[in-house]
């Protein structure tokens, strides 16, 4: 069961990563990036690194996303 879960999470992670690179709309890219970070946090947790998971969730998914959003709001939304 955990095997399937791992495969699912990793697949989603890769899809997110590729999508971030390909998508033209920057805001969507940022949201996808946040999703990527969340996946990453889950993976950290699964790798028995809960404190890294916590930091990743707080920074990767939270603060970084916010900073990106702010930057986009200051500049352009399209690449």
């Amino acid at each position: 069961m955990t095997e399937i879960f791992h495969v699912m999470v990793l697949t989603f992670l890769i899809i997110c990563a590729i999508a971030v690179a390909y998508i033209r709309d920057l805001l969507s890219a940022v949201i996808l990036f946040a999703a990527y970070s969340l996946m990453m946090a889950v993976i950290w947790q699964q790798l028995d690194a809960p404190d890294i998971a916590m930091a990743e969730a707080a920074i990767g998914a939270g603060v970084t996303t916010l900073l990106f959003v702010v930057t986009i709001s200051k500049t352009r939304r399209q690449e």
């Binding site: 809960p50 404190d51 998971a53 916590m54 930091a55 707080a58 939270g62 603060v63 916010l66």
Partner: peptide, 17 residues
């Protein structure tokens, strides 16, 4: 427990954000 200055600090900061 898991956590520490870095993670906790971010959470603290996030509240103000």
């Amino acid at each position: 427990s898991p956590g520490g200055g870095f993670a906790g600090g971010t959470i603290l900061g996030a509240s103000v954000i």
